[in-house]
Computed example of a mutant assay.
Amino acid sequence: MFEDEKDDKIYNLIISNGIDRNNEYGQFTEKLFSKVDFLWKESISGDFSLAGEEFYKKIDRIILLAGLYKDNKELFESLLKASETYNIPIILVRPYGLEEVPEILEEKAATIVGWNANCIVDSIKNACETM
């Protein structure tokens, strides 16, 4: 039996949140927690547009839950700008149960993923900077 290569990295993530009518944030974090071999933590800021280099230089990936975009456009714009400014890859998660994502988000994403826990983790581990 072969063992997968052990990844001891702790990924520091920003996960979009805000107005969340369908609990996509909760469902997404449950997917991450279900992968006990994937180490991660979440960084949160009261206002991502005011967080500076000291905050963002510690971030490995920005996760955008596309289903939250319509009700949280300002937050998404702040995170898109931070991604570009600090060269942080964006993982775009399709709206739960849908395939289409907003074009503005698709253009900025390093990768787009659905709701399979293995695919999510692989996308986080393998995302590279698009800038």
Rank of each mutant, 00 (worst) to 15 (best):
residue 129 E to H: 13
residue 123 S to T: 04
residue 129 E to I: 15
residue 3 E to S: 13
residue 94 R to S: 05
residue 108 K to T: 00
residue 14 I to C: 07
residue 88 I to T: 01
residue 90 I to R: 00
residue 130 T to H: 04
residue 21 R to A: 08
residue 99 E to Y: 02
residue 89 P to C: 05
residue 46 G to Y: 06
residue 1 M to P: 02
residue 121 V to N: 05
residue 73 K to F: 09
residue 122 D to Y: 15
residue 72 N to W: 05
residue 67 G to Y: 00
residue 44 I to W: 03
residue 108 K to Y: 03
residue 4 D to H: 13
residue 61 R to L: 10
residue 97 G to W: 10
residue 119 C to K: 03
residue 46 G to N: 05
residue 63 I to G: 00
residue 69 Y to P: 09
residue 70 K to R: 07
residue 122 D to I: 14
residue 82 A to T: 10
residue 58 K to I: 03
residue 1 M to N: 06
residue 107 E to H: 14
residue 112 I to N: 03
residue 88 I to S: 00
residue 111 T to L: 10
residue 65 L to G: 03
residue 76 F to H: 02
residue 14 I to A: 08
residue 123 S to V: 12
residue 75 L to Y: 02
residue 80 L to T: 00
residue 19 I to E: 08
residue 37 D to M: 07
residue 29 T to Y: 15
residue 73 K to S: 14
residue 67 G to R: 01
residue 52 G to E: 02
residue 2 F to Q: 13
residue 13 L to N: 06
residue 2 F to T: 13
residue 99 E to G: 10
residue 68 L to V: 01
residue 81 K to G: 04
residue 65 L to M: 09
residue 18 G to E: 01
residue 29 T to Q: 14
residue 70 K to D: 07
residue 130 T to S: 12
residue 22 N to Q: 13
residue 4 D to N: 00
residue 73 K to Y: 14
residue 79 L to N: 01
residue 55 F to T: 00
residue 57 K to V: 15
residue 70 K to E: 09
residue 52 G to M: 06
residue 100 E to C: 04
residue 122 D to V: 14
residue 86 Y to T: 04
residue 48 F to Y: 08
residue 14 I to Y: 00
residue 2 F to L: 14
residue 27 Q to F: 10
residue 41 K to R: 07
residue 50 L to E: 04
residue 110 A to G: 11
residue 72 N to D: 05
residue 84 E to L: 15
residue 34 S to L: 15
residue 21 R to L: 04
residue 16 S to V: 05
residue 3 E to W: 09
residue 127 A to C: 15
residue 45 S to T: 11
residue 39 L to S: 12
residue 95 P to E: 11
residue 23 N to M: 12
residue 24 E to L: 10
residue 39 L to W: 11
residue 39 L to I: 09
residue 56 Y to G: 01
residue 59 I to N: 02
residue 23 N to I: 08
residue 92 L to F: 06
residue 116 N to G: 13
residue 110 A to H: 02
residue 121 V to F: 08
residue 114 G to S: 08
residue 39 L to A: 11
residue 130 T to I: 14
residue 114 G to V: 04
residue 2 F to N: 13
residue 89 P to T: 09
residue 22 N to R: 08
residue 118 N to G: 13
residue 89 P to Y: 08
residue 60 D to Y: 05
residue 79 L to R: 03
residue 119 C to V: 11
residue 2 F to Y: 14
residue 36 V to N: 12
residue 121 V to R: 07
residue 32 L to M: 07
residue 129 E to C: 15
residue 1 M to G: 07
residue 63 I to E: 00
residue 65 L to C: 11
residue 10 I to G: 03
residue 64 L to M: 12
residue 83 S to D: 04
residue 82 A to L: 15
residue 123 S to N: 09
residue 129 E to A: 11
residue 113 V to D: 07
residue 46 G to A: 04
residue 97 G to M: 08
residue 11 Y to V: 04
residue 72 N to R: 07
residue 1 M to T: 04
residue 123 S to A: 15
residue 74 E to N: 04
residue 87 N to E: 03
residue 51 A to K: 01
residue 44 I to V: 07
residue 5 E to I: 10
residue 10 I to P: 09
residue 79 L to I: 01
residue 33 F to Y: 11
residue 128 C to A: 05
residue 112 I to K: 10
residue 97 G to F: 12
residue 108 K to W: 02
residue 82 A to M: 13
residue 16 S to C: 13
residue 3 E to F: 15
residue 93 V to K: 10
residue 59 I to Q: 03
residue 56 Y to W: 00
residue 128 C to F: 06
residue 17 N to L: 05
residue 130 T to P: 06
residue 10 I to N: 08
residue 18 G to T: 09
residue 120 I to Y: 01
residue 37 D to E: 08
